[in-house]
């Protein structure tokens, strides 16, 4: 089981701020996870349509599309940050 978190417009487009799901074992990278998630609902698909606008944190550390997934507990998906 992995806890997925969504922030900012990703949260709004997906339609929820979090969900807990069981990932198929063949999802071994962040890129594969995003492809799989995009098929979950039209909201997921819309939010993830442009991967250049998506940033990821795996277990609270920034990740890239190539980052491997080793039984993560928490994955956050969000737009590029705009604090400061």
């Amino acid at each position: 089981m992995v806890h997925l978190l969504y922030f900012a417009w990703v949260r709004e487009m997906v339609g929820t701020d979090s969900e807990t799901i069981t990932l198929p074992t063949e999802l071994t990278t962040v890129a594969a996870l995003l492809d799989w998630l995009a098929a979950r609902s039209p909201g997921h698909a819309a939010a993830l349509a442009d991967r250049s606008r998506i940033r990821i944190a795996v277990d609270q550390a920034f990740a890239t599309a190539a980052t491997p997934l080793n039984n993560p507990r928490e994955i956050a998906i969000f737009p590029p940050v705009t604090g400061g």
């Binding site: 922030f7 900012a8 944190a57 969000f78 940050v81 705009t82 604090g83 400061g84």
Partner: peptide, 10 residues
């Protein structure tokens, strides 16, 4: 802080 801290402005 502007580019590496997880904040989003609306």
């Amino acid at each position: 802080l502007k580019t590496k801290a997880p904040f989003w402005k609306r």
